[in-house]
Design a protein around this nucleic acid. Structure first.
Lengths: 248, 248
DNA sequence: ATCTTATGTGGACAGTGTTCACGAAGAAAG
DNA sequence: CTTTCTTCGTGAACACTGTCCACATAAGAT
């Protein structure tokens, strides 16, 4: 049986969570005000400490939420609805691909969703990928790291599938540097079939293009282009990246 | 003749500037404390307003300084010492290429310097490319934008040179999107010879790889790799990018 | 009915950026 | 040399911020 007290607690926990997300949507991670959140929930600033132990705990929770939300969108975009645990909130993803679609199309949809999500949630993007807040260090074994790894998996997986199905070709490096072997091992633990060091490196390179294009656009480095030109640029960048890995 | 008063003013202006840069090296743009800077200079917080009109002015100055410093390093790396106005501070750039070196080597050196500088100045990197500070908007016609454009030129120039000398090949897009033509025009104004829309798009794609690789590394997304592995990964990423544009 | 534990509060402390009235010192004009 | 004007710098104040602590008030358990 659930006591009346416990019920109120989980309800207030959810309230705070929602208020924090609402505020993050408006003001950016650095200006996230603990006192304003307390005001929104209708509680005193000190009382908030009974639920989240200070600002760092709030940020930890927001970061974890951000990673899982992004990962959900990425999984849905490539047609892997079974990977997302909590449907309902992530229901309306614009371009959810069919799981039977060609691997390259699913990869494309995943990459486009990375941009779409980031443009729609700029503050979350900066919270996840921007500078760490004032010496805030995520607990390495905590939920944050797990959510981060899941997001990385959602990003690597479609590239891996396209590679396995022969739609992407990655030339083997003549002399793969030492460190990349360990990277390949790390990725291989997640993948069904071991990947080569060359493929592992190439995957991170693809993430780099993707991330850099989004980060530069979001930061306003392309502000002298008009709105739709940035979309065209992004599409051209992705196609160029894929062309470089076309088999033939 | 320069009055005694004016001399003191320029000296104090420089003092504040140095104190601000020192503090930025330590604490990150969001925690940059105006009062701490005033303490360092030995002035009251209110007195600082006679020199810089509030925190935004300080940030504007730091951003401008950051862009020019990065641009100087990039120009020196490709062997264009004549482009940097204020030598002396930027004297010791690790890998200053000869102006007669092969274009591809100069391009490589420039890209490597982008990473080196960013890893050496993480807070400046976040200030320049991270999220805009609490609704801070750079004046569009101001010095900030000029310094930003100069940095972009330092980044585009070596790619342009390599392209002109035939060391880089960029396939023409079959149907270049509308917005990219205007992008090409904008770049062409800076370059000696007009560039195609395809080349313009490809240049920004290269910047995206470069920027994304650095941003992800700096943000700790590669933290599960060991130190030297990230260097190897970066080198592999650059070579893969160049390989995709090899003529033959 | 008593005891224990969780919950919430107001007050305080040390910070922050910014504004304002006011005094002191340099520069210029009589 | 004296007066006027402008710049410089200060201390106090205001409205914020995150965090901590003693204290009262409830709920749950014995």
């Amino acid at each position: 049986m659930v006591g009346r007290r416990e019920a109120l607690r989980t309800e207030l926990l959810a309230s705070v969570r929602e208020a924090a997300r609402d505020q993050l949507r408006a003001v950016g991670p650095a200006d996230l005000s603990l006192r304003a959140i307390a005001r929104d929930v209708g509680i005193s600033p000190a009382g908030l400490y009974r639920y989240y132990d200070g600002r760092d705990a709030l940020l930890t929770m927001l970061i974890t939420d951000g990673y899982t939300d992004l990962a959900d969108h990425l999984f849905l975009a490539q047609g892997l609805a079974e990977e997302v645990s909590d449907l309902g909130r992530t229901r309306q993803v614009p371009e959810a691909a069919d799981a039977d679609a060609p691997p390259l199309d699913r990869l494309r949809a995943t990459w486009r969703t990375y941009r779409t999500w980031s443009l729609a949630h700029p503050n979350e993007f900066h919270l996840l990928f921007g500078q760490p807040i004032e010496g805030y260090a995520a607990p390495l074994d905590g939920a944050t790291t797990r959510a981060n790894a899941r997001m990385a998996r959602a990003l690597v997986l479609p590239a891996y599938v396209a590679w396995q199905s022969g739609d992407l070709d990655v030339p083997d490096l003549a002399d793969p540097p030492h460190g990349l072997h360990r990277l390949a091992e790390a990725i291989s633990e997640e993948a069904p079939v071991p990947v080569s060091a060359s493929f592992a490196a190439r995957t991170l390179a693809w993430w780099s293009v993707l991330h850099g294009a989004v980060a530069l656009e979001l930061n306003g480095q392309f502000r002298w282009l008009d709105e739709d030109a940035t979309g065209d640029l992004f599409a051209a960048t992705l196609e160029a990246t894929l062309d470089a890995a076309r088999p033939d």
